[in-house]
Design a protein around this nucleic acid. Structure first.
Lengths: 226, 226
DNA sequence: CGTATGGTTGAAATTTGTCAACCATGGTGG
DNA sequence: CCACCATGGTTGACAAATTTCAACCATACG
């Protein structure tokens, strides 16, 4: 259950900056801290704020009538999430790891002169997100499971990869089901594909969440269907 | 070949409004006319204008290194295409039917006060496009070919459907390969699926490009995996 | 009327999904 | 401090769906 998440991150940060978060509630640029599993917002919520991710990982999800879920995107530090469509959020947003965001009160209908800096950033974020979504299409379109998973690993590496000697280290904050719902695969297929990558020494794993890319060039070639 | 497209639409419009198109070249709000197969812009072109579609159908495509193609979107009257990312077009844009657009000189970095109306419209278009792309994800994610094609037909109906007695008429301006590359399927699978729909009296066809939806409720239920 | 393009159909092969069982890990409670 | 349990992850065998490759048909245009 989400509710019993350890919360140690949250307590740390809440302890450090609780007054900021509380006293600025409703104002501009205040911070919010989420522990794993907590919602930042829900689909169809009235959108009052946009959020700048400072720390952690978020998952943006849309759910269909029949219950099927689609993970539209993952967000990492530097991203802006919560762009409104017709004044509402078009996805739900959940922390998949402890998160810190800055909330900015934002109304796309308001005159841009009012907050020129924020307005420009939101527009840039929107245009950038369009490209990211288009990139994601190339990932979902007629591609094999191996190509999809390799492309996803490379994208993650690009966003949150850490150096590790000659290799690159990725800490996966999302689980296999999240990845599957992002790539249009089943968790079983994702798992099998990762196993194949491990058996062919493309990657190494330490537990399920820590991945080491052993051979970047080959990973790139797999992602491109080589 | 694109080059030998009939051009009769173009000639009509060029004959009617050639001076407007020419004398306003470089200015704001001038019109452009394209015949089938002509490019409005190419991927990675420097983006100087955004285009408001007045008439016709456009196809937005991204191409991968290995030559595989993805149809990111189709655009119809009322849409705005050509939103820049980092000052460049992120897709190529081709007319799949004769097209009329209004070109607006647009620089996202310019102060919004300069063209408040256009700026607001572009932002709204960007936010709307994000939702449309997210919707499209639900279409590409783990869904059967029948669900994808049905959802696409319903979307087309919503955008360009015409009344036809109790039924709804759609004039498909794109070919089967375009649809396939949009849905992440092969042209053969698209064709087979449409044939099934016809055989089960969900739709009727007049040639390959004119489709009549005979049973909207059932079409909706197929799109949702019913 | 012939040709080219796009569309359709068929049969076989491949991939992925499904269902089920099993394993690993980490947090909880004894 | 250790055992247990729950969750998520992995693996296997089978079924289902889609792709592939090939041939054939229809339509529009020269």
């Amino acid at each position: 259950m989400f509710e019993n998440a350890s919360g140690h991150f949250r307590s740390v940060h809440s302890a450090l900056k609780p007054k900021t978060a509380l006293k600025n509630e409703g104002a501009d640029g205040f911070r919010r801290y989420l522990s794993q599993g907590e919602h930042l917002f829900y689909e169809a919520d009235r959108a009052v704020f946009v959020y700048e991710v400072v720390f952690g990982s978020l998952r943006l999800t849309r759910i269909q009538q029949d219950g099927r879920r689609h993970v539209v995107a993952f967000a990492f530090p530097g991203d802006i999430v919560g762009l409104p469509v017709d004044g509402r959020h078009s996805t739900e947003c959940v922390a998949v790891a402890p998160v810190e965001v800055i909330a900015h009160r934002y109304d796309p209908a308001a005159p841009p002169e009012q907050k020129p800096g924020l307005h420009a950033r939101v527009l840039a974020a929107a245009l950038e997100e369009i490209r990211a979504l288009q990139d994601h299409f190339l990932m979902l379109g007629r591609r094999s499971a191996a190509e999809k998973v390799a492309a996803f690993i490379l994208w993650l590496e690009h966003r949150i990869g850490e150096g590790a000697g000659a290799c690159r280290l990725i800490r996966l904050s999302m689980n296999r089901a999240d990845i599957a719902d992002h790539l249009g695969l089943t968790p079983e297929t994702v798992s099998r594909t990762i196993t194949q990558f491990r058996e062919s020494r493309l990657i190494a794993l330490d537990g399920a969440q820590t991945m080491l890319i052993l051979d970047m060039p080959r990973m790139k070639s797999v992602a491109e269907g080589g």
